[in-house]
Write a protein that binds this DNA or RNA. Sequence first.
DNA 1: CCCAACTCCTGGGCGC
DNA 2: TGCGCCCAGGAGTTGG
Length: 268
Amino acid sequence: MPELPEVETIRRQLEPRLRGRVVRDAWSHPSGKFTPARETVGSEFVGLGRRGKFLLAELDDGRELVIHLGMTGQLAIKADEGRPDDPHLRAWWRLDRGLALSFVDIRRFGRLRVVEAGDYRAIPTLAAAGPEPFDPDLDAATFHRLLSRSRRRIKTQLLSQRPVAGVGNIYADEALWIAEINPAATRIGPDRAKRLLQAVRDVLGQGIENGGTTLRDYRDAEGRSGGNQHELAAYGRGGLPCLRCGTALRTRVIDARTTTFCPECQRR
DNA sequence: CCCAACTCCTGGGCGC
DNA sequence: TGCGCCCAGGAGTTGG
């Protein structure tokens, strides 16, 4: 499931190859999640940004193609050999210079949208997204204030993208484990907010360094797996010993998301 | 405005 | 071997 590190890895790989390319033709799966691909015909890609888990492909006409990879989305630029015969192909762009961009997404949780640049009113999660985790203006006090706006459980808040953008289920469990905060906690003091912000930065930064986490489907824009799955301390380790204290990690469902934590280190 | 519940999807894993 | 069932999960939608 692509989270910020996976999306950023793809962005870095794709950006230099996409910049300057003109869309000659486009195809999409009939679902409305993907048909906006066709609205880009004739435009040129002039940049590739990222906000949280959203990719923002800037067009030369003042619009943006907003891409969310969902659970299983994969983007790649390759030589144009005609539209690939892949049953999971959801969108395909024929570019100039003999290249083509493909969007493959097995589970179809991804989506595309073309908007006027910066106008995200039609994409509520993006419009309401909190600061980027590595924004230097985001300090512990600001993060604490953002967390205090809601009484929902801390894990749920992280997944909401509102206190900070880009965290998904894997990195949320990892950050809470590092910060030694119970995922069901509803009130986070200033000191714990400070620890959590640092932990979020640590796990996301490490995820980027390792080229993302591949559990099953994630591949970067070169088709390669990431390496961060070998560094996970909490996610997917239910029943295994905590790497800090040896207690068996516990798995439970919090707000419909599988959550793994240490019942000893992460007491309420 | 906030929030909870439901929805979308399909391959893989499991029990039998 | 194969069938049926169930699960994972980000974000959009709906309704209170």
